[in-house]
C-alpha cells in the first residue's frame, strides 16, 4: 500500500480536503458555482441540500469521477486534477466512497464484493486472512449471514450496508458517505450513525456525510454546511443552524 500518503502527511493544521472556488456545469447548466470548503483532519462534515442540488457531484469531484470546470481540489494536499493515473489511485486508496445506490458488483457474492478490492491490492494476503477480514467487516454492519448472497437478493438497506462494509475494508483515512442511512429503518440507521461516529473516534477518519436524515446529522456532525443554488448558503454546528434565523435553512430541521 502507498505509504507516502497518510493522514498525517497533510500536517495537523492543514485541511485533509481543501476545495477552492469549484465550478461545475452539465450541458451548460451550472450545478456548482463557486464552492469553498475545507475538511480538517478527524472532522465529520455533514452536507445538507435539496435533492438535485449537486451534493453527490461535489463528492465525486474529490475522487476524480467528475471533472470540474474550474477551481482547485486538494486531498491530502495533492491537487487532484494534476495527478497521473497512478498517483490518483494512491489517493483513492486512502479515500473511501459510499455510493448513493451502493453500486455492488452484481456478478459477485457479497463476500466476493468485499474480498475483491483486498485481493486486488494486497496480493500477499492469504485466503484465510481475507475471509477473516471480510467476516469482521460484515459483522460491523450486522450482515454476517448475507456473505453468500448475491446483491440481487438483498434489500436496498442491506445493499447499502454491504457497500459501507466494502468501503471500510480498505481502511480509508477519509470517508465520503452519500446518504448512508437512506432506506434504513430507524434502529438500523441509528446503528449506522453510531458506526460512522465510531470510525471517527477510534480510527480518526475524516468524513463528509451527505444526508437528509437529521438524526444522523445530529449524531455525527462536527459541522454542517447547506448547499443552495450551487454555493454554500449556510455553515455551522447543528444547534447554530437549527436556532439560526434563516428560514430556508430551518426547513431542514422541521
Amino acid at each position: 500500500m502507498a505509504e507516502s500518503i497518510s493522514a498525517g502527511s497533510a500536517g495537523p493544521d492543514k485541511p485533509v480536503v481543501d476545495i477552492r472556488d469549484l465550478k461545475i456545469s452539465f450541458n451548460r447548466i451550472p450545478i456548482l458555482s463557486g464552492i469553498n470548503l475545507q475538511v480538517r483532519h478527524g472532522e465529520n462534515l455533514v452536507v445538507l441540500g435539496k435533492s438535485g442540488s449537486g451534493k453527490s457531484v461535489l463528492i465525486k469531484c474529490l475522487v476524480g469521477l467528475v471533472e470540474p470546470d474550474a477551481g482547485e481540489i486538494r486531498v491530502f494536499d495533492k491537487d487532484i486534477s494534476n495527478l497521473s493515473y497512478e498517483q490518483l489511485n494512491e489517493v483513492r486508496l486512502k479515500v473511501g466512497f459510499l455510493f448513493q445506490n451502493a453500486a455492488l458488483y452484481d456478478s459477485m457474492t457479497v463476500g466476493d464484493n468485499l474480498a475483491f478490492p483486498l485481493r486486488y491490492h494486497f496480493k500477499k494476503l492469504k485466503p484465510a486472512q481475507i475471509r477473516q477480514l471480510v467476516g469482521e467487516a460484515l459483522d460491523s454492519v450486522g450482515l454476517q449471514e448475507a456473505i453468500d448472497k448475491m446483491p440481487s437478493e438483498l434489500s436496498g438497506g442491506m445493499s447499502k450496508r454491504v457497500g459501507l462494509a466494502r468501503t471500510l475494508i480498505l481502511k480509508p483515512d477519509i470517508m465520503l458517505y452519500d446518504e448512508p442511512t437512506t432506506g434504513l429503518d430507524t434502529a438500523t440507521s441509528k446503528e449506522i450513525s453510531a458506526l460512522i461516529l465510531e470510525m471517527q473516534r477510534k480510527k480518526n477518519i475524516s468524513s463528509i456525510i451527505i444526508t437528509h436524515d437529521m438524526h444522523c446529522a445530529k449524531t455525527t456532525a462536527d459541522r454542517l454546511v447547506v448547499l443552495k443554488e450551487g454555493v454554500i448558503a449556510a455553515e455551522g454546528s447543528y444547534d447554530q443552524l437549527r436556532d439560526g434565523d434563516d428560514p430556508w435553512t430551518k426547513t431542514f430541521f422541521e
Partner: peptide, 13 residues
C-alpha cells in the same frame, strides 16, 4: 449502476 465508478474509486483499474 456506477459499478465501474466503484472500481475507479477503490483504485481498481
Amino acid at each position: 449502476t456506477e459499478q465501474i465508478d466503484a472500481m475507479e474509486v477503490s483504485a481498481i483499474n
